[in-house]
Amino acid sequence: MAEVKTVKVTIDNITVEVPQGTSILQAARMIGGDVVPPAMCYYSKLEGSGGKCRTCLVEVSKGSEADPRPMPKLVASCRTGVMDGMEVRNITSDRVKDARNGVVEFLLLNHPLDCPICDQAGECHLQDLGYEHGKEATRYEFKRRTFEKHDLGPYIQLHMTRCILCYRCVYTADQLTEKRVHGVLSRGDYAEIATYIEKSLDNNFIGNVIDVCPVGALTDKTFRFKNRVWFTKPVTAHRDCSSCCGKVTLWQRGEEVLRVTARKDQWGEVEEWICNVCRFDKKKTSDWTIEGPSHVSRHSVISQGHYEHLVQPKETFTAVHDGRHPQLLMDIHSVSEVNDKTAKTKS
């Protein structure tokens, strides 16, 4: 077997050796931590995705060892390959921070900010992005763009008003199903995800569009308004499924299975696709072999108060963040009683 050539790339002064052909974003993910640019449209499992949202823009301050010239414009790190000796600046670049703030503002411009009634709240990538990079107030004073809600068949609801046009659901349908029936219609700020004429999405793998959606535009109708994700307890489980891997996360309240999703990695990406039967029809604990509680990042609101033997972290907030000051602009605990420790006792 031919040896894979590796190249060296330096991102925010951290050097890493990666296989040739790796994107800057993937190289940053290999380093991990703060140097990883946020990604709202890129999805490593979906071919052709990325490049659109512009949140992962980075500055290439040195092109490569062979051609050290910097790249004049910021580049989408998800779609730019690394070169040997390349130097990239992400959080160490003021240009990047400025551009990213702009992108976040653009993404939120027409977003309804209806988090209190949105099922995605708590696991929404736009919410996270907004907390980390957004401002406390909008400069947009005009009427926001709105759309009617649509049922895409019995399982999926499309709430286009929340959509940021990442195209992930389109790629998912293209790559997982044999017949795509939804797509992007119209153009510019009129562009929307739709089926054109009322059509149902019923392919056995189409439920995955819910998992890839970074916001609450595509939600699971069998779970809508049943609960808030941070009240539910994610449990890793599997079953013998004839059409998919059967490896899932069950979201339970007590013994009740409220929701089934694919398992997600630390970047919020699905590890393996699951079928609609596993996702929508297997809602009894007895349908599944339970493996144990799923790992949820301590930074996530979902981790709040799930576990029986929860140990309060001893480190201070600053210590957890390696000495940096917290980036949160708003203290979640102070504004929402749902995170009140006394409220979780019933289980």
Binding site: K179, R180, V181, H182, G183, V184, L185, S186, R187, T195, Y196
Partner: peptide
């Protein structure tokens, strides 16, 4: 083609 491919283009 799938009908959606035509709708996508016609609306663009």
């Amino acid at each position: 083609l799938e009908p959606i491919e035509v709708y996508e283009v016609a609306t663009f």
